[in-house]
């Protein structure tokens, strides 16, 4: 059972970062708590450091258009994403997946920042954000003042439960560049049941169709490797070809070859590859139909 030395709910980013700096890797950030509570009963059972509740830190909630990007605060809940008009209009693939994310109660608590920092290979928000070329902003203290660095989501994920986040750093926002005009994307979460399920795999596809040919192709896969990832081989296969059955089959083949899934209690590697093929093929055709 957890013996927390310090619980704190800072009211400024600076204060939060000071606590994170002080406790280093003995600090855990509490946002929605939906993953953290499970960790405290499991891998973090013997944690004796600090629990830093960042829910009081201002400026970390909501979706805003800033110049040519959309900035999504780390504390924005999945419910808020699901209902946000900016997300619905400009990032519909993100809104869609929020509808399949856990259950209503969990969606009300879980945050976008937490979902990414938890770094599950099956994280529901990772695949659509990878499709959207999202970047994450990581804050830390420099001297006494907060500073931020930005990383692509692809570089952020390092392994199951492992990210590029360093001790003392806090994920403050997700930044999504405005997608190219005409960009359409879809994602498929494959599991045993339609709700309350961890993906066996998740598959995302997005592209523009220009003169009947695919342009700006993006393919992302979840739960097929130690991290959610983009699949450049499949993207290359799609690029410049018509979105027809032959293209879909070829892209699916590239993705299957790129996937490195494992056998676990949820599915075999064979089934994961099989689902990547089935769903990628279906989704390419879906996106192509518009």
């Amino acid at each position: 059972m957890v013996r927390i030395e310090c619980y704190s709910a800072p009211t400024s980013l600076r204060e939060a970062l000071q606590l994170l700096a002080k406790y280093g890797d003995r600090a855990r950030v509490l946002a929605g708590g939906t993953d953290l509570v499970l960790r405290l009963e499991g891998v973090d059972r013997d944690l004796e450091g600090a629990l830093v509740n960042i829910k009081q830190v201002p400026g970390l909630v909501g979706v805003r258009a800033v110049d040519d990007v959309y900035r999504i605060g780390a504390l924005t809940t999945v419910t808020e994403l699901r209902e946000d008009p900016v997300v619905a209009e400009h990032m519909p693939v993100l809104a869609d997946i929020c509808d399949h994310f856990a259950s209503g109660q969990i969606r009300n608590a879980a945050t976008i920042g937490g979902n990414l920092v938890n770094a599950s290979p099956a994280a529901d928000l990772a695949v659509p954000l990878l499709l959207l070329d999202a970047r994450v902003r990581l804050a830390s203290l420099e001297g006494d003042q907060p500073r931020e660095r930005e990383l692509s989501l692809g570089d952020f994920f390092r392994g199951p439960g492992v990210t590029a986040l360093e001790a003392g750093e806090l994920l403050t926002a997700v930044v999504v560049p405005r997608p190219p005009p005409g960009f359409r994307a879809r994602m498929r979460k494959a599991g045993t049941r339609p709700a309350m399920d961890i993906s066996i795999v998740s598959v995302g596809v997005g592209f523009c169709v220009d003169g009947g040919l695919i342009r700006d192709a993006r393919v992302a896969l979840g739960a097929t490797a130690p991290t959610p990832l983009r699949c450049p081989a499949a993207e290359k296969t799609l690029e410049g070809r018509p979105p027809d059955a032959a293209t879909a089959r070829a892209a699916a083949q590239s993705a299957v070859e790129a996937a490195r899934p494992i056998d676990d209690v949820r599915a075999s590697a064979w089934y994961r590859r099989h689902l990547v093929r089935v769903h990628l093929e279906r989704e390419v055709l879906h996106v192509g139909r518009g």
Binding site: T192, R193, P194, A195, M196, D197, I198, V265, R266
Partner: peptide
Amino acid sequence: TLSEELLVQEGRVRNPCFRDYKIMTAPD
């Protein structure tokens, strides 16, 4: 019929949680 199985391998229970032991939910 469709989803529930207590995975017993080597005499151990491999899925002792509702995350991986799947009972029917309302949308099912």
